[in-house]
Lab assay of single mutants.
Amino acid sequence: KKIKIKIKVYNPETKEVLELEIEVSEEEAEELAKKLAEELEKKGYKIEEVEI
């Protein structure tokens, strides 16, 4: 079964909002969402919402 992940991120420095969407297997979904959120935060983005 495929799971659709939508991530909306906001960069306070540039006032930019990015929306990302990807489909992955159920097993990958939670781990991938967690890794993406961590990487984006390292780059200065503030995570507003992660929906699985």
Rank of each mutant, 00 (worst) to 15 (best):
Y45A: 00
I22L: 07
E28S: 13
E41R: 12
T14H: 04
T14S: 13
K6W: 04
E38M: 15
I22Q: 10
E19I: 15
K42Y: 04
K15E: 06
K46D: 11
V50S: 03
G44N: 01
K15Y: 12
K34N: 05
K4L: 09
A37P: 03
K15D: 09
L20G: 03
A29M: 03
K46V: 10
K46Q: 09
I3W: 14
E21P: 00
I47V: 10
E30P: 08
E31G: 15
E38P: 00
E13H: 11
I22W: 14
K2G: 11
P12C: 15
K8D: 01
L36C: 06
K35S: 07
K1D: 08
E23Q: 13
L18T: 10
E27H: 14
I52D: 01
Y10E: 03
E13F: 11
E49Q: 10
E27T: 05
K1L: 14
I52M: 07
E13S: 13
E41V: 11
T14M: 04
E28R: 14
E27P: 14
P12L: 15
L32H: 07
E39I: 06
S25N: 14
G44A: 01
Y10N: 08
N11R: 03
Y10I: 11
A37V: 14
I3E: 03
S25M: 11
K2L: 10
S25Q: 15
E39Y: 05
T14I: 04
K42V: 06
K1N: 11
L36H: 04
E41L: 07
E27F: 10
E49F: 13
K2M: 15
V17N: 06
P12A: 09
E26T: 08
E16R: 10
E51L: 09
E13Y: 14
V50Q: 02
K46H: 09
E51W: 12
S25W: 10
G44T: 00
K35T: 11
K42R: 12
E19H: 04
K6H: 13
E38A: 09
A33S: 07
E21F: 12
E48N: 08
K4H: 14
S25F: 10
E27D: 12
K4R: 09
A37Q: 12
V9S: 12
E41A: 09
E16W: 08
E13M: 14
K35L: 14
E21S: 13
K42L: 07
Y45E: 01
K4C: 15
I52F: 15
K2S: 10
I22R: 10
K6M: 05
E16K: 07
E28Q: 10
K42T: 04
E38R: 08
K2V: 13
L32D: 04
E26S: 12
E19P: 02
E27S: 14
A37G: 06
K4D: 01
V24S: 13
L36V: 10
K15Q: 06
E27Y: 07
T14A: 05
T14R: 07
G44Q: 00
I47R: 01
L20E: 03
G44V: 00
A29T: 02
E30H: 14
V50E: 01
N11V: 10
E19G: 03
V17K: 12
A29F: 02
E30L: 15
K4I: 11
I5P: 00
E51G: 06
N11S: 15
K4N: 09
K8V: 05
A29G: 04
E21G: 07
I5C: 02
K35W: 06
V50R: 00
K43T: 06
I47C: 03
K8L: 02
E13W: 09
E48M: 14
T14D: 06
P12M: 10
E26C: 11
K35G: 07
K4Y: 14
I52W: 06
E21M: 14
V50C: 14
Y10Q: 05
L36Y: 13
E23I: 05
S25L: 09
I52V: 07
E31C: 13
L36W: 13
N11C: 15
L18Y: 13
S25R: 08
L36D: 00
Y10V: 12
A33K: 08
T14W: 03
V50W: 06
K8Y: 04
P12Y: 12
L20W: 10
K8S: 07
P12R: 05
I22M: 15
T14G: 05
S25C: 15
E39G: 02
K35I: 06
E16N: 07
E19K: 13
K1P: 08
E30W: 05
V50L: 13
L32S: 11
E49N: 08
